[in-house]
């Protein structure tokens, strides 16, 4: 189902602006990052892009950024060593989210096939909504990143269109 795969590698390079940063040390700080990221994208990004004609909720970049920010920061809190930090940057391909933590021995793994298993759904959602998703180790820290396009991934739209959600 997911056209996007989890890759091992550094975040995409490019000219990134409007960088916002958060310290993630509690669930509340994760929720705040999620909320502020959604607001930032809605204000800066979607003012230049009309609502997608599909009408899907997650066609909006702000919704995909908020979901991804929430999932990646929650994963950092639950499964990694502090300090956990998050950032959101603007580029010409969309929005780059990077969540950094101190756990270099525990790296992300692609979700398995069993959707009823504990864990894995968050990364599955992130991969369905992102153009690229990856992780790398850098200077004693782990970086997990996702590139969210201004326009939604075609594979995501196709999945939602097939389901005929109204």
């Amino acid at each position: 189902m997911n056209a996007t795969v989890l890759i091992e590698g550094r975040p995409p390079i490019g000219f990134w602006a409007q960088r916002l940063d958060w310290d993630i040390d509690t669930v509340d700080s994760s929720v705040l990052a999620r909320t502020e990221a959604r607001s930032a994208v809605a204000a800066a990004g979607e003012s230049h892009h009309a609502a997608h004609p599909s009408g899907h909720v997650f066609a909006a970049a702000s919704e995909r950024v908020a979901m991804t920010m929430g999932e990646l920061t929650t994963n950092g809190l639950r499964h990694a060593e502090p300090p956990v930090t998050a950032s959101l940057s603007r580029g010409n391909r969309g929005w780059l989210l990077v969540v950094s933590d101190g756990s270099v021995s525990r790296v992300p793994a692609a979700p398995g096939q069993d959707i009823t298993a504990v864990g894995g759904l968050g990364l599955r959602l992130v991969m369905s909504m992102s153009l690229e998703v990856g992780w790398c180790l850098e200077r004693g820290r782990k970086l997990v990143w996702a590139l969210i396009g201004d326009t939604p991934p075609k594979s995501m739209l196709a999945t939602l269109d097939r389901a005929a959600i109204s």
């Binding site: 599955r124 369905s128 995501m156 999945t159 939602l160 389901a163 959600i165």
Partner: peptide, 16 residues
């Protein structure tokens, strides 16, 4: 429902 948000999420994880 309706909840388009919930419907989309369970569809995207393959649980529709």
């Amino acid at each position: 429902g309706p909840s388009r948000r919930v419907a989309e999420l369970i569809t995207l994880v393959g649980a529709g």
